[in-house]
């Protein structure tokens, strides 16, 4: 392929790097979406995806007018095979360059077919799969054998920027358009409603109300400081620790938001240094058969 040169900032976006971070992200995102869709499927695939369930007409859609028709019930098993088959293939790195396009397609369909059950998680997954579709090499975390490859760092940068912007704009919208600066008990009130898990109910009974105000402030400060916490390598360990606690708290106290936290954690993977990712990968290789995971034993 013909190569061109650019004068500045190219190292930041186009330096050549090991593929391990993007491959680890691919495996984690596909596994998370597999769990998420499996749960939705188990709860009510027909209601969610087919004409058996209630679906809003094109004229009355609440968010945008892009209408995608639900499936006829007899096509549901075929769609299920495509959905879970493509995600499994992406997760294990089988023909990942091609199967990731299928995974992207089924995720887009599942997001658009029912505006009532698609949330931020779906949107982040679509962005993640799109990055993978345009860039994945699929060498590490793969059942296929192959030699190590290098790739341009831009997909990693896009995913890193996505995580930082997701946190920062979430904090900004709470402060600028929401109540979080003027009302210390937004989080306390949010936990009372239909997201409330058994653990959340217990915490609400046991922790005095002012304590929830402190939790709220810590959460807001974390989101607003996320560009620094994840942008500067020296602060990243703090970003991981505070962000990890934040996402685990969300997952434990808000029903089903564990899937949101899982997808957010996938984006943490692209901040982990390559040597550590290789060590983790080799630990897994030690657990599973050597035949299952291709790639070198050291980097």
């Amino acid at each position: 392929m013909k190569k061109i040169k650019l004068p500045q900032l190219r190292e930041f976006f186009f330096a050549s790097v090991d593929t391990v971070r993007l491959d680890a992200f691919r495996m984690c995102l596909a596994a998370s979406m597999l769990l998420y869709f499996a749960d939705w499927w188990k709860q009510g695939a027909e209601e969610w995806l087919t004409t058996e369930g209630f679906h809003i007409s094109k004229e009355a859609l609440p968010y945008h007018p892009w209408y995608v028709a639900p499936l006829s019930p007899e096509f549901l098993p075929w769609f299920g095979m495509l959905l879970f088959g493509s995600l499994t293939a992406v997760m294990v790195g089988w023909q990942a360059r091609w199967t990731v396009w299928l995974a992207l397609g089924v995720t887009v369909y599942a997001t658009l077919v029912d505006q009532l059950s698609a949330f931020t998680l779906n949107k982040l997954a679509i962005a993640g799969f799109l990055v993978l579709a345009l860039a994945t090499k699929g060498h590490y975390w793969s059942i296929e054998r192959g030699s190590p490859q290098k790739q341009s760092v831009w997909p990693i940068r896009i995913l890193q920027i996505t995580l930082i912007l997701q946190y920062f704009t979430a904090g900004w919208s709470k402060a600028a358009y929401g109540d979080w600066l003027g009302h210390p008990y937004v989080f306390w009130e949010q936990l009372h409603g239909f997201y409330r898990t058994d653990l959340a109910a217990w915490l609400l009974r046991e922790i005095p109300k002012p304590g929830w105000g402190i939790v709220q402030w810590l959460g807001l400060i974390f989101e607003l400081l996320s560009p620094a916490l994840f942008g500067f390598p020296a602060l990243r360990v703090w970003g991981f620790m505070i962000g990890g606690i934040f996402q685990i708290l969300v997952a434990l106290t808000m029903y089903k938001l564990i899937y949101f936290s899982l997808v957010m954690f996938c984006f943490y993977v692209v901040f982990i240094p390559d040597p550590l990712l290789h060590r983790i990968r080799l630990s897994f290789r030690g657990i599973f058969s050597k035949k299952k995971f291709a790639g070198p034993t050291s980097t």
């Binding site: 949107k123 679509i126 962005a127 979430a170 900004w172 919208s173 358009y177 009130e189």
Partner: peptide
């Protein structure tokens, strides 16, 4: 698809 920020903004 790009509107991902507005989560739990109000009490």
């Amino acid at each position: 698809l790009q509107r991902v920020a507005f989560l739990f903004t109000n009490g």
